[in-house]
């Protein structure tokens, strides 16, 4: 039971961590909004992960492990600039509106704005499970809470975003006659489906 955990050698660890950099950047962006500050956070997390590589157990999910490190930095270093950055709609717009298909960008902007109004714990739960590809169990590990708590946060996030999109009459309800509350029920079915494939 207490046999030493298998470890990756440094080269293998570095390869796997390098492959995760885009995900660290995406998770950081969802936490702090501003792209420059998010990259600062993601770099910090990458270096802390590298320095903590001896504690990583080979064969476990490095994404969940590294996300835990990133999230701990975000919430523990309260004086860092990224904590003071609200999600900025103008930044979001410049980030998301694609030149080739601006309509897509506006849809995403509506969703992003709705996400930005959620309590942080609900937003991160929805991002981790619905976009980041983590299982409920892995998301619970990242957020240091029970699996049931993650499910509850995702459920509340779903309802809150639904209400926001319905109120604004933007995004999903505008073009394809989609009712956001139904759509969010669907996405969680889909998240379950994705999670079950792990």
């Amino acid at each position: 039971m207490h046999k030493p955990a298998a470890r990756l050698d440094d080269a293998a660890f570095k390869r796997e961590l390098t492959d995760l950099i885009p995900h660290l950047r995406a998770f950081a962006r969802s936490l702090c909004g501003d792209p420059t500050l998010a990259d600062d956070l993601a770099q910090d997390a990458m270096l802390k992960a590298w320095n903590a590589r001896e504690s990583f157990e080979a064969g476990t999910n490095m994404k969940a492990w590294a996300f835990t490190i990133l999230r701990n930095i975000f919430y523990s270093e309260k004086r860092r600039a990224w904590r003071r950055q609200p999600l900025d709609p103008e930044v979001a717009e410049s980030t998301l509106v694609s030149a080739s298909n601006p309509g897509d960008g506006l849809d995403l902007l509506a969703l992003r704005n709705a996400l930005g109004l959620l309590p942080a714990d609900q937003r991160e739960a929805l991002i981790l499970v619905g976009a980041g590809g983590l299982s409920y169990e892995e998301a619970a590990e990242v957020c240091s809470c029970a699996v049931g708590t993650i499910k509850s946060r995702v459920s509340r996030a779903r309802k809150a975003v639904t209400d926001l999109l319905e109120t604004n009459k933007t995004g999903f309800s505008s073009d394809h006659g989609i009712r956001a509350d139904q759509a969010f029920d669907d996405i969680m079915d889909q998240a379950d489906h994705i999670a079950s494939g792990h």
């Binding site: 885009p22 950047r25 995406a26 962006r29 969802s30 980030t95 998301l96 897509d104 849809d107 995403l108 969703l111 992003r112 996400l115 929805l126 991002i127 619905g130 976009a131 980041g132 999903f172 394809h176 989609i178 009712r179 956001a180 139904q182 759509a183 969010f184 029920d185 669907d186 996405i187 079915d189 889909q190 998240a191």
Partner: peptide, 16 residues
């Protein structure tokens, strides 16, 4: 509908 919304949530993430 779920496919469309799920796709958009993932695209927010995958754009990064």
């Amino acid at each position: 509908r779920g496919d469309r919304l799920g796709e958009q949530l993932r695209r927010l993430y995958d754009d990064v």
